[in-house]
């Protein structure tokens, strides 16, 4: 079994999920609570990876992250290294690809919180930031968990975008889904089957862990 590809997949999913939750929370907060004229355009942009074919998204990412693209050039200038066909490159691509899967559940959870509860926190002296982490976050645990599951699972199964931006370099960018595809191409069905099963079990275990955490965090209804 290609354990290296499995390890790389888990690493990619974990890093992407951690970074995305951090970035998606303030974005979801702004979309849930601020009314600004450009909001429909910003929201459409956030949701774009949901409807865009992964290969198309991967192609554009390849262009901007390539040595002649804006992000690629900036990265090379900053670190002296290329961004495409590296692990950092596929993390960045995954961040874009999975972004709506983190933002949407968080936004829905934030919108569900009664405005009076937030106003009550303001009247009791809490700033917007304090209200965010003392009231909004603890009352959005369900949404945070859903965002975590979706982002993690979505990144685990990523294929098109990673293939376009990262190629298939063993130990660097060859994640499990790409390894499975290559096994099938080489008619190595047994290896493809083992890796697929491992991926399925891993996904299931993630869901179990998250559900257990969810049960513990429930404070009744």
């Amino acid at each position: 079994m290609d354990t290296l590809a499995l390890y790389l997949t888990a690493k990619l999913a974990l890093i992407t999920t951690a970074i995305l939750l951090f970035i998606a929370m303030p974005v979801a907060y702004c979309c849930a609570y601020f009314r600004f004229p450009a909001r429909p355009y910003v929201e459409a942009l956030i949701s774009l990876p949901l409807v865009m074919p992964p290969t198309v998204l991967g192609f554009y990412l390849l262009i901007v992250m390539g040595p002649n693209g804006g992000i690629g050039r900036f990265w090379e200038h900053l670190t002296g290294r290329r961004l495409c066909f590296t692990f950092t490159g596929i993390v960045l691509a995954s961040l874009v690809y999975s972004f709506p899967f983190a933002v949407q559940p968080l936004k829905a959870a934030f919108e569900k919180i009664d405005l009076r509860m937030i106003e009550s926190a303001y009247v009791l002296g809490c700033s917007r930031l304090e209200t965010f982490y003392k009231v909004i976050i603890p009352n959005s645990l369900g949404g945070i968990i859903v965002a975590t599951i979706l982002t993690f699972a979505h990144t685990m199964g990523e294929f098109g975008v990673v293939l376009m931006v990262g190629g298939s370099i063993p130990g660097k960018t060859k994640v499990a889904s790409i390894a499975i595809y290559e096994y099938v191409e080489a008619l190595r069905y047994r290896d493809a089957n083992i890796l697929s099963l491992a991926l399925a079990v891993m996904s299931y275990l993630v869901l179990v862990v998250v559900n257990v955490l969810n049960q513990r965090n429930k404070y009744g209804s």
Binding site: R116, V123, N139, Y219
Partner: peptide, 13 residues
């Protein structure tokens, strides 16, 4: 100031 709302002002968590 203290503000008592009709309901929902307590923090459920």
């Amino acid at each position: 100031l203290g503000y008592v709302f009709q309901e929902y002002s307590l923090f459920p968590h």
